[in-house]
Design a protein around this nucleic acid. Structure first.
Lengths: 127, 127
DNA sequence: TTAACACCTGGAGTTAACTCCAAGTCAAGG
DNA sequence: CCTTGACTTGGAGTTAACTCCAGGTGTTAA
């Protein structure tokens, strides 16, 4: 798969894909004779995982560290697990916070609905 | 309340508080004769609201626009409601995404737990 | 009244994560 | 073969949201 196709499919820009490779978030992608990147299925899967974690606010350098550990093989399983657990804790806290914010937003919106309703009422009353 | 106390209480740095004022996220804070900021209860409440929305990823300029509308009085209620509704939609989508990511993270962690268990098993087997 | 410390300003610097650019190479159709 | 369009690189530029700094002023306790 060529870079433009991967970009299309993943929603990440070609610049971002090359940037991810530069900072070690993606492995060195294999090339055709002419030097053009050819993404494998495994690369695509990794990109999906990265995308998911990035939208959850997991920083690029944490992910880079994680993949570096993956490269190092089975001895790093414990360390990798810890990284993921730390991020899980962060995520759980974040979801809770977002839900609080959502509740606040809902009550604000409701407040505005009441205000609008009342304004309308007053308009009607003036007849 | 002085800026350092507000900082302490809100968890925002004094620099951030001054920055928020500069970009119009906070109104011009009233000053003592000497020119030192004296935050009112209303300011504190607004800071709490801002903090909540910022941690939910609501951009500073959207919030600035929102408060500018608040200044303009009742005619802008409809517009303000729309801003909040847009953000609510964004938030709901975000929470859903985070929950998906959390599920993925959980299954990855479980995978590592199995791997560790198996490694231990093999260690025991070797006796 | 002076030391020490918190506060002020305007403006420069930082960080993360891209995003863009110039100048060049590769691939495919006519 | 030549053009057109996608690909390459290294490196510079951008954006949001702070964060820091220098040089100065206000405040308070000994």
């Amino acid at each position: 798969m060529k870079i433009s196709e991967v970009s299309e499919q993943s929603g990440l820009s070609v610049d971002t894909l090359r940037y991810y490779e530069k900072v070690g978030l993606l492995p060195p992608i294999t090339r055709t004779n002419g030097g053009i990147r050819e993404y494998t299925e495994a690369d695509i899967k990794r990109i999906d995982f990265i995308k998911c974690m990035r939208t959850a606010g997991l920083p690029v350098d944490v992910l880079t560290e994680y993949f570096a550990l993956v490269e190092q093989g089975d001895e790093t399983i414990e360390a990798r697990k810890e990284i993921l657990q730390t991020q899980r804790t962060r995520l759980v806290a974040m979801i809770a916070e977002l839900q609080d914010t959502l509740a606040l937003l809902n009550s604000k919106i409701e407040g505005y609905e009441d205000a609008l309703l009342q304004a309308e009422q007053e308009l009607t009353d003036s007849y």
